[in-house]
Each structure stands twice: as C-alpha cells, then as structure tokens.
C-alpha cells in the first residue's frame, strides 16, 4: 500500500484513502464543441503512459476529497512530488536531483 502525501492535508496518508484519477495536465479544450475528431481522440483516449516519471492525478477521496497532482516514477512507484490542482508542473530536473523522493 502506497503512502501518499496529500498537499491539502499536508501529510502522508495510506493509499486506501485515495483514488488514482489518470494522467494529469490534460486540459479539457475550452472550445470543446469545435475540436476535430483527432483532437478529441488525443484529449480523451491517447495517454503518455510513460515508463519513468509520470504526471498523474489522484483524489483524496476518503480524506479531504480533493483532486491533486503527483509526479511518480512508474518504475519504482516512488512519488517525487505532489502538488495542488492548478499549480504548474514541477521542474523534473530539480526533483530527480533530490534523489529518493522522501
């Protein structure tokens, strides 16, 4: 069971309180009705699925209820950072230099 730092509760909580919510930073087009089939496919179906650092969404569904973002290494499953929804992607280089993400 992972231990996940909730940026709203400001502490690590057990995975059982969280729901994974897919890839992060896929903004819903503001002109939704007008996008092309390809753009819709990219928005709704295509995923980065990286082996390595992934930006992803979680919801502290059985905690504070908030959605937030995380950077996690999908090989080690270690979290490098979690941050609030709406905040920009953290700088990967500075995160990886910090080492074990603890």
């Amino acid at each position: 069971m992972l231990l996940i730092y909730c940026p709203y509760c400001q502490e690590e909580r057990p995975e059982l309180e969280f729901a994974h919510a897919g890839e992060a930073h896929i903004a819903r087009p503001t002109n939704m009705a007008d996008i092309s089939d390809e753009e819709f496919e990219t928005f709704f179906f295509i995923r980065s699925n990286p082996k390595g650092l992934a930006y992803e969404r979680w919801r502290h569904v059985h905690g504070c209820g908030c959605f937030f973002n995380a950077v996690r290494d999908t090989v080690s499953d270690k979290f490098l950072a979690t941050y609030k929804t709406g905040e920009p992607k953290p700088d990967i280089d500075s995160l990886t230099k910090k080492g074990d993400g603890k």
Partner: peptide, 13 residues
C-alpha cells in the same frame, strides 16, 4: 492495482 506502473509489485490490499 489502481495506479499505472511498470513495476509488477502491487499492494497487499
């Protein structure tokens, strides 16, 4: 497991 991963470990739960 609920999260994407390339590590086939997974949780006890």
């Amino acid at each position: 497991d609920q999260y994407t991963s390339y590590s086939p470990t997974g949780g006890l739960h």
